[in-house]
C-alpha cells in the first residue's frame, strides 16, 4: 500500500493531502477533510447518498478511488451555496418538504444540480431519470420532484 499526494480542488479551494491507494473519495471528504455533509448509505454504490460532483458530473464518491480525482474539481453539498447564498435547490427542497430524515438529501441535491446544469428546464420524466440513482426511503420522491421543478422555474425567471 503506497501513499500518494493528492492535489485537487474541493468547493473552490485547493487541497493537498496524503492518501493511500485504496482510500475512496468518500473517505477523503468525510474523514480527512471533515466534510460530513456527504453521506454514506451502503459503501458499495447502490444508494446514491454519497453523490458529489467531480468536474460537474455526478459520481458515487464511495466508488471513486481518491487518486482518480487528482487535478479535478469536486463539489459537495457544503459547496452548493455561492457566497453564502443557498442554491435555489437547497431553498426549494427546504421550502417544499423534500427532506424528511435528510439523509439522502445532500446526494439528491448534487444529482439535481447536475441535472439542472445540463438541462435547465427538465420535464418530470427527465427529473425522475436524473434522480433514479438516488434512493430516498421517506418522501416517495414526490416533494423532491416538486422542489426540482420549483428551483428550475425560479432559475428561469431570474
Amino acid at each position: 500500500m503506497a501513499d500518494h499526494i493528492l492535489d485537487f480542488d474541493v468547493n473552490g479551494e485547493n487541497r493537498r493531502l496524503l492518501v493511500t491507494d485504496q482510500r475512496t473519495l468518500l473517505e477523503v471528504l468525510r474523514e480527512d477533510l471533515v466534510l460530513t455533509g456527504t453521506k454514506h448509505g451502503c459503501d458499495v454504490g447502490e444508494c446514491g447518498a454519497c453523490t458529489v460532483l467531480v468536474d460537474d458530473r455526478p459520481v458515487l464518491s464511495c466508488l471513486v478511488i481518491a487518486r482518480q480525482v487528482e487535478g479535478s474539481s469536486v463539489r459537495t453539498v457544503e459547496g452548493l451555496a455561492i457566497d453564502g447564498a443557498p442554491d435555489l435547490l437547497q431553498e426549494a427542497f427546504a421550502e417544499l418538504g423534500a427532506a424528511q430524515c435528510g439523509y439522502c438529501t445532500p446526494g439528491m441535491l448534487l444529482s439535481a444540480r447536475a441535472l439542472l446544469d445540463d438541462n435547465p428546464e427538465p420535464t418530470t420524466d427527465e427529473i425522475r431519470e436524473g434522480l433514479a440513482g438516488n434512493l430516498c426511503r421517506c418522501t416517495g420522491y414526490i416533494k423532491i420532484f416538486e422542489a426540482v421543478e420549483l428551483a428550475a422555474s425560479r432559475d428561469h425567471d431570474r
Binding site: L35, T36, V77, E78, Q90, F93, A94
Partner: peptide
C-alpha cells in the same frame, strides 16, 4: 421543518 435549511445545507 424548523431544521430544513440545516438539512439542505448539509
Amino acid at each position: 421543518r424548523v431544521d430544513a435549511m440545516d438539512q439542505t445545507m448539509g
